[in-house]
Amino acid sequence: MLQQSLVFSFFLIFTGAAVLASVALYTRQPLLVAYIVLGAVLGPYGYSLIQDTALLSDISHVGIIFLLFLLGLDMQPSHLVHMLKKATLVAIFSAIIFMAIGYIVGISFGYTRTEAIIIGVALMFSSTIIGIKLLPTTVLHHKHTGELVVGLLLLQDVIAILVLLFLNSGDNGADQITTFLKTVVALPLIIGGSLIFVRYILLPLIQKFDRFHEYIFLVAIGWCLGLAELAHVVGLSAEIGAFIAGVSLATSPIAQYIATSLKPLRDFFLILFFFSIGASFNLALLGQIIVPAIILAVLVLVLKPIVFRFLLQSISESNSLAWEVGFRLGQISEFSLLIAYMATGAAMIGEEASHVIQATAILTFLLSTYVVIFNYPNPIAVSDKLRRD
Rank of each mutant, 00 (worst) to 15 (best):
Q156T: 07
L272W: 12
S237L: 10
W223T: 04
K263V: 08
T114R: 06
L272I: 09
Y103T: 07
A174V: 15
V158Y: 09
L134T: 07
M348K: 11
G39M: 03
I64G: 01
W323N: 09
I161G: 00
I206M: 05
A174Y: 15
G43A: 03
I104Q: 04
M99C: 15
E229Y: 15
A343H: 04
R266Q: 12
A381W: 09
G146K: 00
D58Q: 13
I161R: 03
L283D: 02
H142C: 08
M83W: 15
I161N: 03
D157P: 12
I117V: 15
R199Q: 08
M342D: 05
P253V: 11
I244Q: 03
S383K: 06
A297L: 04
L230F: 15
L236P: 08
T260P: 12
A346M: 06
V382E: 11
L89D: 11
R266T: 05
I13R: 02
E334L: 11
V7T: 05
I159Q: 08
G222V: 05
T53I: 04
D171I: 14
L32E: 02
Q3S: 15
V163E: 01
I117W: 07
S5P: 12
L270E: 02
T364M: 01
A18H: 10
I271W: 08
L265T: 14
V105R: 04
L38G: 05
E147H: 13
L32Q: 00
V233M: 13
L12C: 09
L56W: 01
